[in-house]
Design a protein around this nucleic acid. Sequence first.
DNA 1: TCCAATATGTAGCCTTGGCTACAATTGGCA
DNA 2: TGCCAATTGTAGCCAAGGCTACATATTGGA
Lengths: 150, 150
Amino acid sequence: MIAKAQTQTAAEGLPPVAAQARRFGKARSAQSHARMEDYAELISDLIAAQGEARATDIARRLGVSHATTIKFLARMKAEGLVTSQPYRGVFLTAAGAALAERTRKRHRLVVDLLVAVGVPQDVAEADAEGIEHHVSDAALAAFARFVDAR
Amino acid sequence: MIAKAQTQTAAEGLPPVAAQARRFGKARSAQSHARMEDYAELISDLIAAQGEARATDIARRLGVSHATTIKFLARMKAEGLVTSQPYRGVFLTAAGAALAERTRKRHRLVVDLLVAVGVPQDVAEADAEGIEHHVSDAALAAFARFVDAR
DNA sequence: TCCAATATGTAGCCTTGGCTACAATTGGCA
DNA sequence: TGCCAATTGTAGCCAAGGCTACATATTGGA
């Protein structure tokens, strides 16, 4: 009875293996972009609010150690998203700024959608931080239509 | 000009440091529970659909190697969520079954909500896989009210 | 009955993203 | 002007969760 119903059949009610695997894989890899997006958006916000983004501030706001932040910023620099001189602040490249802008728009739209369906504002803000990285463009478009149509 | 506006002030437009750090921290740690939930739900689905959950099937459906699955199952066993005999299938404990049920309910509710705001069914299914782990109980309650009220 | 295919388990490696501890630089102010 | 505190950078550690390669167990069918 052990190796019987295993020949790709007998999947009553379950999605096809390939589709489900793709889905889970996408959810997994979304997580690696997520941090980049968080950083880009936060750096952009900090520059807008106080004129510069400093590693220590970023670390404090993300709730991680400054060492973690500096290591991550090195990765973003390698990917051409930020620039920095030693002991000067962090700046976004054009690519980084574009990523920040896209992320911010998506973040706002997710919050708006959540609020529109009745989620309290503060809960919406908090949940959006996790949700936003998993919303596809197709879903985002639907969100925009729904929010606009109200 | 470098170390000037840093004394917790000058946060025009930005959320308070502590709140934002908590938010990001929560989003980060949600990710560790996420995998447990995925496994529990999938095991439950497999048992329902084909009478047993086998490591190879789980691996195939998650899109990871069987070695990864077996290592992860060991962790779940250590946490009392599943049991298994060597070369027999995997079974959920009461705690594991409860987790699966909670996760499944949440998953369905997220899909329903997405569909209700106009996201196509297949997109909703795919996105929900990533989104569901970041939806708080408060937001979930709002989702339920919204979906019911239609 | 026994063997080959499949499933399961183990070992060892890699990357990511955390951390602490220590080193170096900067800049304000006494 | 020189020193001290804060910021920034470096080094080395850890756990999680991937992987491949190899070892072991099981079972259906020749």
